[in-house]
Design a protein around this nucleic acid. Sequence first.
DNA 1: AATGAATGAGCATTCATTCAT
DNA 2: TATGAATGAATGCTCATTCAT
Lengths: 198, 198, 198, 198
Amino acid sequence: MERRLTARGRDRRRQLMDFAAHRFAAGGYHPTSVAEIVQGLGVGKGVFYWYFSSKEELLAEILREAQLDLRRAQRAVIAGEPDPVRRIEMGIRSSIDWLDANRHLATLFQFAATETRFAPILRASQELTHNDLTQHVKDGIIDGRIRDADPAILTLAILGVVGNLTRAFLATERARADEVADTAVAFCLQGLLGPGQA
Amino acid sequence: MERRLTARGRDRRRQLMDFAAHRFAAGGYHPTSVAEIVQGLGVGKGVFYWYFSSKEELLAEILREAQLDLRRAQRAVIAGEPDPVRRIEMGIRSSIDWLDANRHLATLFQFAATETRFAPILRASQELTHNDLTQHVKDGIIDGRIRDADPAILTLAILGVVGNLTRAFLATERARADEVADTAVAFCLQGLLGPGQA
Amino acid sequence: MERRLTARGRDRRRQLMDFAAHRFAAGGYHPTSVAEIVQGLGVGKGVFYWYFSSKEELLAEILREAQLDLRRAQRAVIAGEPDPVRRIEMGIRSSIDWLDANRHLATLFQFAATETRFAPILRASQELTHNDLTQHVKDGIIDGRIRDADPAILTLAILGVVGNLTRAFLATERARADEVADTAVAFCLQGLLGPGQA
Amino acid sequence: MERRLTARGRDRRRQLMDFAAHRFAAGGYHPTSVAEIVQGLGVGKGVFYWYFSSKEELLAEILREAQLDLRRAQRAVIAGEPDPVRRIEMGIRSSIDWLDANRHLATLFQFAATETRFAPILRASQELTHNDLTQHVKDGIIDGRIRDADPAILTLAILGVVGNLTRAFLATERARADEVADTAVAFCLQGLLGPGQA
DNA sequence: AATGAATGAGCATTCATTCAT
DNA sequence: TATGAATGAATGCTCATTCAT
């Protein structure tokens, strides 16, 4: 692999990745055949293997690129914000925005986590996100703004809230992304009991 | 199907479901073949189709039974507790305990949610759990114990925290179930900022 | 693999090997598809893979069995003959007889020798045959019956004569196996010049 | 085909034939793809089909040219030698020299003989060689120098010795070409028993 | 209830060949 | 002459399911 591609070639590759990502999310990775993908694009089967060495590698590429993009979105929003609690809030909001705009990729992340072959691909990027977020939590604790608890665990809890709210709400079209984000932020910051409760 | 089974027959069925559940979780539902399952148990293929009409139905059965069991555990613990906040806490703890004891089933839940064919099976039971929890949240709000926000959203947030902490922590053996539960409860109740913060 | 087979199963396996060996010899190993083989036998494709783990393994099995059979034939004929020159002669005759009766396998031997994947399978058995024959040559040299030259080389020369005469003559039906054998024996024993020439 | 080629074109064609011949011998004709050949030379696929109408034709050309070259070598050496026995000897020596210098082509000859599509290509040239050699044998018989046996069979025997010794010895680097030739000549002339034996 | 054998549609992948540029 | 891209029939192989015993 690692082919030198012309502009046309890069277009094709992108088409394949986009189309396949949507089909994988809608019908499942395994049940979606390579034939289905190339037929959907109206091209011959050889085209697929000109751009990807296997169906497995295609999903791997989709996952890698999606994660890169998600992280890019998070970083762009957070850059320049000094307040750690605000950084956390903006991270939550940008993640929900991205997941809203790329629901099919969120589904693929969830699937990939359940298969030994794909889970390792998620690992690296997830760790970066996790570390970034944990750092903001630590900063917040030092500042006295955040409750003194294990930062790693707080991070996981935040990610869980974001993930589940996104999944449940955005899947059903019942809510707009910014409303979901408002609630997620409030819950993460104040919990169930809210300010001044014990 | 719906066969009248002898005691021995029920054992076989159970064996098949347990073994298959572990294989599905470890190797994925699609990549795990029926042949692999019956070979692992040292029986012929006929046995499989005596007890299940298809591979798909096998997973469906596994999912249904697992959800029933999880709900049973939750209910047993909560029964008789009048305080809604305590009910929520005990629900969180019992869920984490169960997921800790049945990690492979947690993986199957996650996978099932990504495939159109299996997601509906999760739906019904999830809704019950969701409704139960939402009711406790509503009670808490009425009591003035819980912050006045959309109960449905708070519920989803709680479930997200439980799910993600369980997944991340229990998968790596870094923590004991009760420690994870302590943190989950604290986060859900107090959020990041804790009592007395704005 | 290594399946426990019933009598019926053993028959099927044999059918597949025999049929495939003839097709491979007639049409070439690579150009002959698995589909062609199972169609020729009027069975489904799965049957093939019930008995052989791959097309490659099928040829390997054919080669192994053929070599075993050829050696069995050689040994049966030579057993009990003390004179080394007579042993050589009888070895030549039995080989030509076997190759005459199994021309298609002779073709497969020749093909297998040209492919890296199959050549090693021939090696072991060929070495045994080679060593047996070399021993007779050595005995003949010690007896003073055979010219004092490198026994290994003489062995290879004999095998070359047998192989080439068989290939050329038997392929064209121009000669009967025993006539070919007479000539091969005479050439190997006396060369071109014959007795009393320098 | 039959293209009028520039000097550069002839070079390219030669490159393709040489490279392909080595790959075919090392990896087998069928398993070696056209893509592999053009990649090995760092050119595009169009180049291949500019010089050859098909992969099949490429091997045919390789075989034809190799046989022409082998015959040229044999003829050059024999020219002007009147003694038929010496002509045979020199033919053997020149063949072994050539096969030693072109081992990969020897492998291709052997492969080609096993496939219906390529065997006919060998036929014509082999017949010429065969006829030449047979003529020398006949001359030797007339002179009373060679044992009175079927010249055609003696010819095949000689070719078998040469082929097998070359294949076995030269493949393993254990011997130099001229030593192998000495033995081959001695065996062909004197057989196993040598002068003065019956 | 259980087994070994069989089925055959379907899958991922390959590859000789062609085409537009 | 040469290239990257495309074609699509064909291949080896898998696997859920069924059948005969």
